[in-house]
């Protein structure tokens, strides 16, 4: 019989940091394997959020950055969200994308932050915030997107919100969408997008 039971090969010693103090120190190690294991140690430890956030800022290795993001997702508190939000403004698209992905997985935790994000001065941040809204329950998402559309002046931000409403909006959005179409009558693509969204929401309802 060529198959053999394991036991002949002792498993290598795991490099998991044994305690929190060690893990905090290990997050600053020069060895990426040590940093990777340290980040993974904090997966269920809300106390680690501050250290994880600091490590994320300077971490050069993608694998370790992912582990830090995963730990922040798993902890899933307001503090995790606060640690991830700055990356919505990051120039590096990979980090920005990773932060959005992480934040999208925390619909309950991001909810208190959404109103402020949707009023952010930066158009790009408002567009990314709309992407986050997509992960929320339909009624809550519709309310947030309608509030945005009532006052939003940037056509690209409106277009993103309309697109999101077409996918998940409820009929409460219909009057807001019609008002938006009137407001942007001179920007032809928006009334067109709105008519599509209205048709889809109405179809879903019917």
């Amino acid at each position: 019989m060529p198959l053999v039971r394991r036991g002949t090969t002792p498993p290598p010693e795991p490099a998991v940091a044994e305690d929190r103090a060690h893990a905090l120190e290990a997050l600053r190690s020069a060895d990426p394997d040590v940093r990777w294991n340290a980040a993974r140690t904090f997966q269920n430890d809300p106390v680690g959020v501050v250290a994880l956030a600091a490590a994320l800022e300077t971490e050069p290795v993608q694998r370790v950055r992912e582990a830090i993001m995963t730990a922040l997702m798993r902890i899933g508190t307001d503090a995790s969200v606060k640690a991830l939000l700055p990356y919505l403004r990051w120039q590096d698209a990979a980090r920005r994308g990773a932060a959005i992905e992480a934040l999208q997985s925390l619909p309950d935790a991001i909810a208190p932050f959404m109103s402020a994000l949707l009023r952010d001065q930066d158009n790009d941040v408002r567009i990314l915030a709309i992407e986050l809204v997509r992960g929320m329950p339909a009624e809550q998402a519709t309310t947030l997107l309608c509030r945005l559309l009532e006052h939003e002046n940037h056509p690209n931000v409106c277009a993103s919100a309309i697109d999101a409403l077409a996918d998940l909006g409820t009929e409460e959005a219909l009057p807001i969408l019609r008002a938006c179409a009137r407001r942007f009558a001179k920007t032809p693509f928006l009334p067109f997008a709105i008519s599509t969204a209205i048709a889809r929401i109405s179809d879903t309802k019917g």
């Binding site: 993974r40 997966q43 992912e66 993001m69 995963t70 997702m73 798993r74 899933g76 992905e101 999208q104 997985s105």
Partner: peptide
């Protein structure tokens, strides 16, 4: 699993 657990 949910997203976070899948990543772990």
């Amino acid at each position: 699993f949910d997203d976070a657990s899948r990543r772990i």
